[in-house]
Write a protein that binds this DNA or RNA. Structure first.
Length: 409
RNA sequence: GUGGCUGUGGUGUAACCUGGCAGCACAGCAGACUGUGGCUCUGCUAGUCCGGGUUCAAAUCCCGGCAGCCACCCCA
């Protein structure tokens, strides 16, 4: 092959595209049910915006564009950042809260692997302007509904919930403030690494209170020491949030070790995994009350989540929740010669008012016309030949029942 | 950026170990079964990732690239 598909990109052939569209439709539908409206941003943004946050690995992963004049651009690597920029531009005139979602593609320059592409799709849902627990509950609930509406149940998925404030307050009893970021990062990946490695990494950071951290992470809501005020407040928040979630509580597990890598989260954080643990996280989100301000806007609380398409589709396929059953056209009309093609086309135009119609362009013989119609799963076939052209009527054959019926042309 | 595995028609594979005409299945195209399908049959299209080396002879052995997948890193 002279020209191969670029590394880490995907082609969607009709059957895969049909699946993608169905999933996207479902995600859009669910978001709209909660009053969220779809928005869209440019594929590229100024490099300044994209690399605003210091010291993030993500900067290495930005697909930068060739510098044309003074301006430097890069392709967006997520949707939260562009959406936040978009919010800021009209911040003063937008009535709060602002409920937006975007479902689009983005790019990261990194080594591809299962469920991770260089070009990928993501649903991003953001709620700007509300700092209430009701807002967090809405976001968590919507996130779960996105998955539930696709057919996933509490047997398939679990949402791990945590509060960064709680985690921080508890950790500060054990470690110095300067180590917080690094330790949280380690905690976030604890589930994926052996216990010894976790301990070693902590020691590398100069932390020797490994067992204290471990027992902290393994504690559940009721066993946490709530003598400190911050801890008490955070615990109360979590408890209230769980109450607000009502029936959806069965999807939720409190888990102190869910931290999320991105450092812009400030409060509630959550991540959804499949229960088998086979896939990387399929959804992640949380509260990020500082981001708008960090980008130069007026301080605005915000919360949201993102769902990646790659892992989601792998999981849905695994659970047998998506099938590539493609419906064929209602009619296939074959013409036996160029002379009869105009009759076929006229008939097709008439039928297309109500049906999907495919017309032969190959000029095959009758047997092969039918074979083809069969293969594309057409429901009914009409063959136009000399006889039909003369008599002005044709036979409509139902391919399922085999019944035939005459129509006039 | 690091490591492991794998490269044979469009797809899935056989032949690789032990060098000797690259085979099979599916898909595609054309046709037969008198202008009405699904079966069957026939024919056609199409391949050894690239470059070097060894050899009378390389898909096969050796070296070097490249590509893909998977894992790490990080994350969706």
């Amino acid at each position: 092959m002279a020209f191969a598909r670029p590394k880490g990109t995907e082609d969607f052939y009709p059957s895969q595209m049909a699946i993608r569209s169905r999933i996207f439709d479902s995600l859009r539908n669910t978001s709209q049910k909660y009053g969220y409206r779809e928005v869209s941003t440019p594929a590229f943004e100024s490099l300044g915006l994209l690399s605003k946050k210091e010291g993030e690995e993500i900067k290495e992963q930005i697909f930068t564009l060739e510098k044309r004049s003074k301006e430097e651009f890069g392709l967006r690597f997520d949707l939260t950042v562009p959406l936040t920029r978009m919010f800021m531009e009209q911040q003063k005139s937008l009535s709060k809260p602002v409920r937006w979602f975007a479902l689009d593609r983005m790019w990261r320059y990194e080594r591809p692997q299962k469920g991770r592409m260089r070009e990928f799709y993501q649903l991003s849902v953001e709620l700007f302007g509300a700092d209430s627990l009701t807002a967090d509950a809405e976001i968590v609930s919507l996130a779960l509904d996105c998955l539930i509406d696709l057919g996933l149940t509490e047997k398939d998925i679990v949402l791990k919930l945590n509060d960064r404030k709680l985690l921080q307050a508890l950790l500060l009893d054990i470690i110095p403030k300067g180590k917080l970021e690094a330790v949280i990062r380690l905690i976030d990946k604890r589930a994926k690494i052996p216990a010894e490695v976790f301990a070693d990494e902590l020691k590398k950071e100069g932390i020797d209170k490994v067992s204290e951290i471990e027992s902290l992470l393994d504690s559940d809501l009721s066993s946490i020491d709530s003598s400190k005020k911050e801890v008490r407040d955070a615990l109360a928040s979590i408890t209230t949030l769980l109450e607000l979630l009502g029936d959806k509580k069965k999807y939720v597990e409190f888990d102190l070790s869910t931290a999320r890598g991105l450092s812009y989260y400030t409060g509630i954080v959550f991540e959804v995994f499949d229960r088998t643990g086979k896939y990387r996280s399929i959804l992640g989100g949380g509260r990020y009350d500082n981001l708008v301000e960090m980008f130069g806007g007026q301080p605005t609380p915000a919360t949201g989540f993102g769902i990646g398409y790659s892992t989601l589709s792998l999981l849905l396929e695994d659970k047998g929740l998506i099938s590539a059953d493609e419906a064929g056209p209602d009619y296939f009309i074959g013409a036996l010669s160029e002379g009869q093609a105009s009759i076929a086309l006229k008939l097709a135009t008439k039928l297309r008012k109500k049906s999907t119609v495919e017309v032969d362009v190959m000029g095959r013989n009758v047997g092969n016309q039918l074979k083809y119609a069969n293969k594309i799963k057409a429901r009914k076939v009409i063959i136009i030949g000399e006889d039909e052209a003369k008599s002005g009527s044709a036979v409509v054959k139902d391919l399922e029942t085999g019944k035939e019926e005459k129509i006039s042309l």
